[in-house]
Amino acid sequence: MSKASEIDIVSVSKIYGNTTAVHAISLKIPGGSYCCLLGPSGCGKSSTLRMIAGHESISSGDIRLGNAVITDLPPAKRGTSMMFQSYALFPHLDLVDNVAFSLKMKGVEKEERRAKALDMLKLMQMEAYAARRPQQLSGGQQQRVALARALITGPDALLLDEPLSALDPFLKIRMRAELKKLQKSLGISFIHVTHSQEEAMALADIIVVMNDGRIEQAASPREVFERPATAFVARFMGDHNVLSGRVVSNEGGRVVFEAVEGQVFSVAGKGPEIGSSVDIGVRTDKVRIEEPVERSLGFNGVVSNLEYRGSSVKLTVMGAGSDDFTVILSDADYFDKPVAVGDAVALSWAIEDAVLLGRVAS
């Protein structure tokens, strides 16, 4: 198999008794890409990763790696390798024997497997610690050893289950950069489960946003940020507000709808029938505290919260049927015209800064 084998997930479901954890998802992950499965707890991302790894049986559907169907293969025969959240290092073995363990299971001679393990520790800049035991290492060092152990078999795809969750914030940022660099230098696919939007945006070539066992959107970080596919993605990524209402007209490539409090908004797009429900996303950083003028829309609301963030200020506003309409202003813009909690404000945004949101079929 080439070192850049595509992973093709075809109508894969996972059912536990009466509960469907993953609903017939289909996804192509190009070879040599960094893919993040992103979503809240219980959305099906870890079940999906474990099914790719072979640690979880597939209820229906198939998984291909390159030209091989790996659906029913045991984990060791799949061409994938998994790094677990807990790192799962053996406390009684030194680092070399920890890293070499899978080669020992395959019957590789002691001298050869220890030499290979030392090479992997060098790759992770951990050769100076080769004779140590895991408990003598920091969390970041343990993670490097776990990575070395997962990569020693030369997999086509490395599977990572929340690999950064146990690290402190500064180390997380450093390890993010190292993971990305490692993935590019190895040229293999990394599939990384996370619930952190920031982590996925920083690392991924493809972000797969999951919710309730379904894929809401699979796209580049820029596409997910600028054009969320659904109201869930817009809310979960946190960079768009969602306004909902009923369609009153739909012509000339423009959808006009009425929100629950009677305000009328429009958005570029077509599709929803008159009278049907519709959601739009409005970029939080594109909203201004001013009355709408030509080619802009808006509403009047009441400020319910303020957060100073240094270079920016986050305002939360109630209005147009939303309890948490968010406005991100630069510190200069905010302090030029400051407002306080309880103030009535006029909000506006350019028509082009709103996006028509779709819905995932249930």
Rank of each mutant, 00 (worst) to 15 (best):
T194S: 11
H195K: 10
H195F: 10
S196H: 02
S196Y: 02
S196D: 12
S196G: 08
Q197R: 13
E198H: 13
E199D: 00
A200S: 08
M201A: 03
M201G: 00
A202E: 00
I206M: 10
I207W: 04
I207V: 14
N211T: 05
N211D: 15
D212N: 14
G213C: 11
R214S: 14
R214D: 12
I215H: 02
A218Y: 04
A218I: 05
S220Y: 09
F225G: 00
F225R: 09
F225C: 09
F225S: 09
E226Y: 11
P228F: 03
T230D: 02
T230H: 04
V233P: 03
V233T: 05
A234T: 01
R235A: 03
F236A: 01
G238W: 12
D239K: 15
D239Q: 12
H240K: 15
L243A: 01
L243V: 11
S244C: 11
G245I: 06
G245S: 02
G245W: 10
G245Q: 04
R246G: 00
R246H: 12
R246D: 04
R246P: 00
V247W: 09
V248L: 12
V248S: 14
E251K: 13
G253E: 05
R254K: 11
F257K: 09
F257H: 09
F257C: 10
F257N: 09
E258N: 00
E258G: 04
E258K: 15
A259T: 15
V260C: 10
G262Q: 11
Q263S: 15
V264Q: 13
F265N: 00
G271N: 10
P272C: 08
E273D: 14
I274A: 10
S276F: 03
S277Q: 06
V278H: 07
I280K: 04
I280S: 03
V282K: 13
V282R: 09
V282S: 12
D285A: 15
K286N: 02
V287C: 08
R288V: 02
I289V: 15
E290C: 09
E291A: 14
P292M: 08
V293L: 11
V293G: 15
R295S: 12
F299A: 03
N300I: 05
N300S: 09
N300V: 12
N300Q: 10
G301Q: 01
V302D: 01
V302Y: 02
